[in-house]
Amino acid sequence: MQIEKAILAVITTNRSAIDGGAPIFICKNRKEAEDTAANLEAITDGIAHELSEELFIIVRH
């Protein structure tokens, strides 16, 4: 049931909080981040998880 997990993308509104690794999408505000996360979720067949107000990750489960 569980396949290897991988972080496919990181979406944030706070550039200073992140570094390296998966593709990073920097957004101006929360609304834009949510829209980007929704699109990326649909495109990558992953799940958008919220880590904090300003940070989303897309994970393939």
Partner: peptide, 9 residues
Amino acid sequence: IMNIGLPER
């Protein structure tokens, strides 16, 4: 159960 990030979901 799990973490769901998007408000619409």
